[in-house]
Design a protein around this nucleic acid. Sequence first.
DNA 1: GCCTACATGTAAACCGTTACATGATTAT
DNA 2: ATAATCATGTAACGGTTTACATGTAGGC
Lengths: 191, 191
Amino acid sequence: MALSHAILALLIDNPYSGYDLAKDFDQSVNFFWTASHQQIYRELGKLEDQQWVEVEQVEQEGRPDKKLYHITEAGKTHLLEWLLKSCEPMPIKEDLLVKLWAGNLMVSLPEPSKPVSALVEETQRHRQLHAEKLTVFQRIKSEFYPTPADLTIGQTFHYLVLRRGIRYEEDAIAWCDEVLEALANHSGRAV
Amino acid sequence: MALSHAILALLIDNPYSGYDLAKDFDQSVNFFWTASHQQIYRELGKLEDQQWVEVEQVEQEGRPDKKLYHITEAGKTHLLEWLLKSCEPMPIKEDLLVKLWAGNLMVSLPEPSKPVSALVEETQRHRQLHAEKLTVFQRIKSEFYPTPADLTIGQTFHYLVLRRGIRYEEDAIAWCDEVLEALANHSGRAV
DNA sequence: GCCTACATGTAAACCGTTACATGATTAT
DNA sequence: ATAATCATGTAACGGTTTACATGTAGGC
């Protein structure tokens, strides 16, 4: 299980509260992992039990207090050991692909135009979502890594992960365009 | 949950046994979903309870009997209803990306060359795995969809899903090459 | 007055993985 | 003989999602 490792990886550079981890997993670093706040709070508890993180209570004015989690030396050692093990690529599980595959169902319907147009709209919606993520990732790139050739090796690691996110969203957008073009070509002619 | 829908989507064109579904999810159609045989058997049981599939007992010579599952009209209706609902893109959860992000840890180590080379080897291994999947997908393409422009709309749906798999693996390979090049550039100079 | 952001949690249901379990046939 | 392929399942555990739960501060 890699949620614990993803959390530890984020804690290397800065301490985080559970709330902030959830926000980053949802917004800026969701090109390498995602998790809900419930998963994160539970996982932080386990990490604390293992003494891979330490808690610092921070009192705030006008806001609830928060718990800042710091990675420990034992936590770093644990992460390093995990780094040396092999791991498998993420399997694809994409609802939209299942829907397109099942699009066959609609070919034989008496009135096929309506559900097919639903798939077109869904593809356009996904294209939009991917474009929004790409915009976020590109903003991070121009803000933090404007000249990739000049990065230290430490910065390069983060930059390469961001590159995966950028490539992934670009590729998803290009595929959505392929789908939209192919379905548009077919709507003009006989089934 | 979309495992049930992925199974129903496969059953549209042909009846399947649990065993064959597991094989296809593992081999040929893992560009849109994956599942273990245990998940599939459990899910087929649920689909039968809902009457979205029907079982045909098939006796075989020299082999264990098998259960062929057919989609029912109610199953098709259920799938169509699901098609009209919106869905979200798959979140990325990629161990290799977490490892690269955490590569920062190794910069400050007394002997950084060893763990960094482990990351290089792991990236090469993943490149290899993606290249193998790409080969499979390309074979499917040349066998079933040699001239994409001539496909019926029914075939086009399947072809577009395959295209996503091909693009995904190509993109993953290209990214691995970026990583290997960037790390090679850094190994030659001071950290 | 209502919604959003901040901040942390519990409980239950569901999904996914691993291990266990069986047994025939075919190929090496 | 041994391993791989065909074929189906159960049990236990662990991870993920969804709903429930609470409370403050600030903006509209």
